[in-house]
């Protein structure tokens, strides 16, 4: 079973995703795919908060900032995988390691393929993304391309997943499939 969760920042997506992964795993192995590649102390503090949040929940953590589909080789593919977040993965894929210069234009396609592979082959998968599409701002072209690319990945995942949930101020909207907390 695959689940896609999106919504605004600090709306409870990550904690819902963790609860969902625990439920879907039905006691089987749970893999947390950590996606952030830390750049500074703020990132490291955020990661430490997330690690503390997950302590005792029984997740095995895999750090995969790029090439997310490798989680299927690094862990039993029958496991329940929690991928948090699509947003961070896209940024990482746009800037391959030691990369200088412009963003890689093939990033969104590559990431979509990787995530759809996970959705297809994993025992269960929960994907977390961010709804960044409703602002009264004219963004610079880099940001606008990033939003368009993230939307293309989100929409491919939403089409592929059994259940699609949105969190709005902590409230759950079921866009596709069924969800019983």
């Amino acid at each position: 079973m695959n689940l896609f969760i999106s919504g605004g920042a600090k709306n409870g997506k990550s904690s819902l995703a963790q609860r969902a992964a625990i439920k879907l795993s039905a006691g089987g192995p749970k893999i947390y795919v950590a996606t952030m590649i830390p750049c500074d102390d703020e990132d490291r503090a955020r990661i430490a908060r997330h690690v503390a949040d997950r302590a005792g929940l029984g997740f095995t953590t895999l750090e995969l900032g790029r090439g997310v589909e490798r989680c299927l080789e690094l862990a039993d593919p029958a496991s329940t995988f929690l991928v948090d977040s699509v947003t961070a993965l896209l940024l990482n894929e746009m800037y391959p390691e030691n990369h200088t210069g412009d963003a890689d234009p093939g990033a969104a396609r590559r990431l979509t393929d990787g995530l759809l592979t996970v959705a297809r082959r994993a025992g269960n998968a929960v994907f977390v993304s961010d709804a960044i599409y409703s602002d009264a701002i004219r963004y610079d072209s880099f940001t606008e391309h990033y939003r368009a690319d993230l939307a293309s990945v989100d929409r491919a995942l939403a089409a592929a997943c059994d259940t699609v949930l949105e969190l709005c101020a902590g409230n759950l909207i079921v866009h596709k499939g069924v969800w019983e907390p």
Partner: peptide, 22 residues
């Protein structure tokens, strides 16, 4: 119509008026 009224209140006066008008 795009729901541009969901995001953060923008700093610019024109963008604020645009967001509210929409």
């Amino acid at each position: 119509c795009q729901d541009i009224f969901c995001g953060v209140v923008p700093l610019g006066a024109e963008n604020r008026a645009w967001r509210e008008a929409t």
